[in-house]
Amino acid sequence: MEDVEPLVEEAAKKAAVAWLAVPGAGPSYLVWCAWLGGSLLVVSGPGEQAAPGLAESGTAEVTLRGDHGGRIVTWTATVEALDPAGEAWSELVPQLAGKRLNGGTELAARWAAECVVSRLTPADGAPLLPLPEDSQAAPPKPSPATRLPKRPFRLHKVRGARR
C-alpha cells in the first residue's frame, strides 16, 4: 500500500463515526469506527451496528467530517473482512475493543463468534472524491406524527405589525 493521503489519515484518526456508501446497498449510512494500523475498522452484526452489504463488498466510499461537523473528505476504500484466526485480528481487534466504552476481552471473543470486523483501507492510487456543490440534504420522510401548526394565539392586536 502506498502512503495514505495526509487529509484522510488526519480526519480518520479524529473520527468516531463515518458515512459509508456501499455499491448496491442503498443510501449512505452512519457507522461507528476507529482508525488503527492505517485502516478504518468497522464492527457489524448481531448486537452491533448494521452495515448492509459491507462484508460482501470489495469497495466502499467513506466520508468523514471535520471538527466543525461538516464533510471534509470522501475516499474510496478496499474492504476486507478480518479473519478471527488471522494475525491482523490478534493485532487490531483487542485495540478496537479497548476503544469501546464497554470494551474488553469478552467483547473481542463475541465479535469473533457472532460479528464481522471489516477493515477499510484507502485504495492504492485512488484520488480523493470531489465534495459535492449542494448540501445533499434529503427532505424529511412523511409521518403520521406530523401536523400543521396552529397560528399563535394573540389576545390583543400587535401594534406596528403590517401585512
Rank of each mutant, 00 (worst) to 15 (best):
R159M: 08
S143G: 08
K13F: 07
C33R: 03
L92F: 06
A55D: 09
G26Q: 06
C33M: 14
L82N: 01
A11E: 05
A97R: 00
W32K: 10
G45A: 07
V17F: 14
E61C: 13
T105G: 14
D83F: 13
P84G: 02
P23M: 08
Q49P: 00
L129T: 07
E10W: 10
R119C: 15
A60Y: 09
D134H: 15
V42M: 03
G69F: 03
V4P: 00
G66A: 08
W89G: 03
D124I: 02
G103V: 05
M1L: 14
D124V: 08
P27Y: 03
A145H: 14
P122E: 00
E80M: 06
E2V: 14
L82Q: 01
S118P: 02
G24R: 13
A161E: 01
A97K: 00
P23G: 11
S143W: 14
L128M: 10
T59S: 15
T105I: 09
L36K: 04
L30K: 07
R162M: 09
R71S: 14
S143V: 12
P130H: 11
R100P: 00
S143Q: 08
T146I: 12
A18W: 02
L101H: 08
L101W: 08
R163D: 12
R162Q: 12
D67L: 07
A138L: 13
W89T: 04
G86F: 08
L20R: 13
P27F: 07
V116E: 03
A15C: 10
P94W: 09
D3S: 15
E87F: 04
D67A: 15
R154L: 07
Y29P: 05
G104W: 02
H68G: 04
T63P: 01
T146Y: 12
E56F: 06
T146Q: 09
S28K: 09
R71P: 11
P127V: 04
Q136W: 12
N102Q: 13
G70T: 14
P27E: 03
L155S: 03
E48G: 06
G69T: 01
G69L: 03
A18N: 08
K150A: 10
R159Y: 11
E48T: 06
T78F: 04
G86K: 08
